[in-house]
């Protein structure tokens, strides 16, 4: 299976042999790769039954569930990483999902399309909601009900007392890292964050 670019970047952040929960795991590609390369164990959660069948085909442990209903089937601190790729913006309450991620996991990793990307801004300037490569749906027919920019996300982290451990971004030239060094909120199409609970002193 081949990984999307954001997933490939995540794979570089994961410690070998760790235990991972992948929220909205799709066809299980990330978990398959993490298992193959890094001997990672864990589960995916997926709502789409067709995707669940793909996960079973790949031999991935998959639990049918709706992330908007929280992670009540999982105990506190039961995973090294809780990962959510390209799904945060489709959640009913993204901040509650992040709390849940850091309840059951030591660290969280999310990727999301950056609404602050210059193409989005340019389209908004014309007076219309953006439709781009990463956001191909029209405003009335999109699962992405909570779009945010990189700056918004970092503000949420501050409010939620979440410590950002690592950032990366994929720009429109498919370059990883470049955008994060140089005007990330303007150049990053996909933002990638690794974070944990801020330790209370």
């Amino acid at each position: 299976m081949s990984l999307r670019q954001d997933q490939a970047l995540i794979a570089e952040w994961i410690a070998p042999g760790s235990r991972v929960l992948d929220l909205g795991c799709g066809d299980g590609a990330l978990l398959v790769e993490l298992r193959r390369r890094l001997n990672v164990s864990g589960y995916g959660i997926e709502i789409d039954r067709e995707n669940i069948v793909r996960c079973l085909e790949a031999g991935v442990n998959v639990i049918h569930g709706n992330l908007d209903q929280g992670l009540q089937d999982f105990d506190d601190d039961s995973f090294d990483y809780v990962i959510m790729t390209q799904t945060l913006q489709a959640m009913r309450y993204p901040h509650l999902v992040i709390r849940e991620m850091l309840r059951v996991g030591r660290e969280g990793i999310v990727t999301f399309p950056n609404f602050g990307h210059w193409k989005c801004r340019l389209q908004l300037l014309t007076g219309q909601m953006p439709v781009t490569r990463h956001l191909p749906s029209t405003w009335y027919d999109t699962a992405n009900i909570h779009m945010c920019t990189i700056r918004d996300f970092e503000a949420l982290c501050a409010t939620e007392r979440v410590e950002v451990l690592e950032r990366a971004a994929v720009d429109s030239e498919h370059r990883a890292g470049f955008a994060m060094r140089f005007l990330p909120n303007l150049l990053a199409e996909i933002a990638i964050y690794r974070f944990r609970r801020k330790t209370v002193l």
């Binding site: 589960y43 669940i52 996960c55 442990n61 998959v62 639990i63 049918h64 999982f74």
Partner: peptide, 16 residues
Amino acid sequence: VRALLDADRDVSYVEI
């Protein structure tokens, strides 16, 4: 499923 997850067993679950 919850018990199997707590016990760290391999499990897949689907509601049809």
